[in-house]
Each structure stands twice: as structure tokens, then as C-alpha cells.
């Protein structure tokens, strides 16, 4: 790893460790190995959002050319959000792309991603299906996001209706995550989801 990148990541790591966000539990950062090229971030779901109470893991890959190029970050924890791919966890955030600036740090990036959870950008979506639901049926979007947070991120709201529907598909032999994706995609209409799964 390039000297400047490794040095900077080490300093940033310390900065994050000392920050009040870490102390308050809002974000966390840990090493995956000792190479400093891969780290794992954690952000807490922001309050007053469907993600509240959830813990979201992020994969952070630091390129050789860091900080002249942005770190590559994606969600490991599955999340229902217009700007995050529900399949790959890829994040659509300008500062991770063309708006990256060398003065940004892992701490500010993690905080930006956390802010993205509070304020989605449905007009610049990463996941078109989620964004459509966000625009057309915000109430259902919130319920779905809360359900995903509960199931994948340890969130508190257990939505019984959704659980039941997933269970119905499970009984039909469908894999759990596949069932949840189908139901979420078709606005929790069991028939349409089933149709899609078995067509």
C-alpha cells in the first residue's frame, strides 16, 4: 500500500477512535486485517427514521491512491433505502464519487452515509425499485425499511404482518431473503410476489 495512504488511514483511524461519535456509539471503525487496506465501519440507524435502533455494517476498501481517490464503501448489512442497492449494498453518494475531496476522512464519510439514511435522495437512486416505492408509497416504504432494519440490523420493530407473509412463502419452499425481496418489491402483495417468484 502506498505510504501516504497507509499513513493517512492510521491517523484517521485514531481520529475516529477518539471522536465523540464513537464515544456516543453513532459510528465505529475496526480493522479487518493489519494491511490497513480494508476496514469495517458501523453506523447506528439515525433516530426518527425507519433505521432507528439498527446497526449497519459497511465494507470499506482503501485504494492505493487514497486520499486522491475516494474509499470504496458498500453496505454489508442489507438495507432498504433508495440510494443503496438492496442487492449489492452499493451506495449512491456524491462524495464517494465525483464530489470526493481529499480533505474528507473516513469519519466524515461515515457521518455522511449516516446522514444519507436520514435524508434519502429518491431523485438520484441506486435502487430504482426502492426509490419508486419511496416516491409512490412513503408509508409502505417506511414500514418495509423498518422491517428490514428489524430483520437484518437488529432493529426493534417487529412487523408481524410482514413476518407472516414471508413465512407463507418460506412454507412454499422459497428462500427467506428472496421471499422478502419479492414481497418488498411488490408492495407486500403476496399474490404478485408469488407470481413473480414462480414464473
Amino acid at each position: 500500500m502506498a505510504n501516504i495512504a497507509a499513513k493517512r488511514i492510521k491517523r484517521e483511524f485514531k481520529e475516529v477512535m477518539k471522536s465523540e461519535e464513537v464515544a456516543g456509539g453513532a459510528i465505529k471503525l475496526e480493522l479487518v486485517d493489519n494491511s490497513w487496506t480494508e476496514l469495517q465501519g458501523t453506523i447506528a440507524g439515525p433516530p426518527d427514521t425507519p433505521y432507528e435502533g439498527g446497526t449497519f455494517l459497511l465494507e470499506i476498501k482503501v485504494p492505493e491512491t487514497y486520499p486522491f481517490n475516494p474509499p470504496k464503501i458498500r453496505f454489508i448489512t442489507k438495507i432498504w433505502h433508495p440510494n443503496v442497492s438492496s442487492v449489492t449494498g452499493a451506495i449512491c453518494l456524491d462524495i464517494l464519487k465525483d464530489q470526493w475531496a481529499a480533505a474528507l476522512t473516513l469519519r466524515t464519510v461515515l457521518l455522511s452515509i449516516q446522514a444519507l439514511l436520514s435524508a434519502a435522495e429518491p431523485n438520484d437512486p441506486q435502487d430504482a425499485v426502492v426509490a419508486k416505492q419511496y416516491r409512490d408509497n412513503l408509508f409502505l416504504f417506511n414500514l418495509t425499511a423498518r422491517h428490514w432494519t428489524n430483520v437484518y440490523a437488529g432493529g426493534p420493530s417487529n412487523i408481524t404482518d410482514f413476518n407472516d407473509m414471508v413465512q407463507r412463502l418460506l412454507d412454499m419452499g422459497v428462500e427467506e431473503h428472496q421471499a422478502r425481496v419479492a414481497l418488498s418489491t411488490y408492495d407486500w402483495e403476496l399474490e404478485r410476489a408469488t407470481e413473480q417468484l414462480f414464473s
Binding site: T42, G54, T55, L57, T77, G154
Partner: peptide, 9 residues
Amino acid sequence: KPKNASEGI
């Protein structure tokens, strides 16, 4: 999974 992760952190 999320529980494990937070313990590891």
C-alpha cells in the same frame, strides 16, 4: 448477525 458484529467491534 448484527449482534455478533457489534460485539466484535
